[in-house]
């Protein structure tokens, strides 16, 4: 049981630094915390060195808090701003090369499936738009074609943020960026459409304007990937540093875009639909039973 690795050897409990004691005592391992509870438990992602107002780190914080089973989750990142966030994550996570995240995850998931046939090990990929849609596009798509059972999350800041604001395939047509000095000459790539076409069982497009929506969609993506097949969540995470915005302005931008050119979209395959409905029914039943229990206690 992997929860074991989150428990301390009692012979050293007295010398462990406070942050680890906090993680063990107030962390999310084996407990039912979600994005809704942020602020009330010790998070697995903390003290990150990202820029002030970074939307990527906000999205990162939300998805980490929304992991259905962190104690059995291995995350895979890629080179880019996310790889500055990942070292601060209290979970096994891989940084390998720029763009190979879905290939690493394919091997990782298959290896874990062989070693732990009776246990669910969630593999979650989180990478930038450059990593997912440009340099790693073949590996993104092929992991979907092959039906690899893990969730892929794109942090779409429509730019190569980490290397100083160059054009990516996800930049909107006409935008002036480094390496696109006269404006981008082609349309933003619709990775969501590609995902549907490639057979993803669940696809969602969201923005940092609605954190709870990110949380809900992400959780569905992880659960559907476990049972049915590949899933994709694309999150608009505008970069205040490269866009030269104040932090508050970047959230407003996300709000504005979510009403215009970055609207919420969700695709759920019939199989995924059925699975999610059955699951919702089960949870509802659980809720009914618990509230009944409570009623009886209060009576």
């Amino acid at each position: 049981m992997s929860l074991e690795i989150t428990r301390m050897n009692p012979h050293f409990a007295d010398v462990m630094p406070q942050e680890y004691t906090d993680l063990v005592e107030n962390g999310p391992f084996g407990r039912d915390f979600g994005a809704r509870d942020l602020g009330s438990f010790k998070e697995l992602f903390e003290e990150h060195p990202m820029c002030a107002g970074c939307n990527l780190s906000l999205a990162f914080r939300i998805i980490v808090a929304s992991l259905p089973n962190p104690a059995d989750t291995i995350m895979v990142g890629s080179t880019g701003c996310n790889s500055i966030a990942f070292p601060q994550l209290a979970l096994h996570n891989v940084h390998s090369l720029f763009g190979n995240q879905n290939a690493i995850a394919s091997g990782l998931k298959r290896g874990l499936a062989l070693r732990f046939p009776d246990k669910v090990k969630d593999v979650v990929v989180v990478a930038g738009d450059g990593a997912t849609a440009d340099i790693g596009l073949d590996m993104t798509l092929h992991s979907w074609f092959r039906g690899e059972k893990f969730a892929t999350v794109m942090f779409d800041n429509e730019i190569y943020a980490n290397t100083g604001g160059q054009e990516s395939g996800m930049t909107e047509c006409g935008e002036i960026r480094n390496m696109a000095p006269t404006g981008k000459k082609f349309n933003k790539i619709s990775v969501a459409n590609l995902a549907i076409e490639a057979g993803c069982a669940y696809v969602a497009v969201v923005t940092t304007a609605s954190p709870l929506k990110i949380s809900k969609c992400f959780e569905k993506a992880v659960l559907v990937a476990r049972e049915i097949g590949p899933t994709y969540v694309q999150i608009y995470t505008p970069c205040p540093t490269n866009l030269k915005l104040k932090s508050s302005e970047s959230v407003s931008l996300a709000k504005e875009r979510s009403k215009g050119t970055y609207q919420f979209r969700e695709h759920v395959s019939p199989e995924a639909e059925e699975f999610l409905a059955a699951r919702a029914e089960k949870t509802e039943e659980q809720v009914r039973v618990t509230s009944k229990d409570e009623e009886m206690h209060s009576a």
Partner: peptide
């Protein structure tokens, strides 16, 4: 990279 991921899984 796929081989690497599998090796990392043990």
């Amino acid at each position: 990279s796929e081989i690497a991921g599998a090796a990392m899984a043990g």
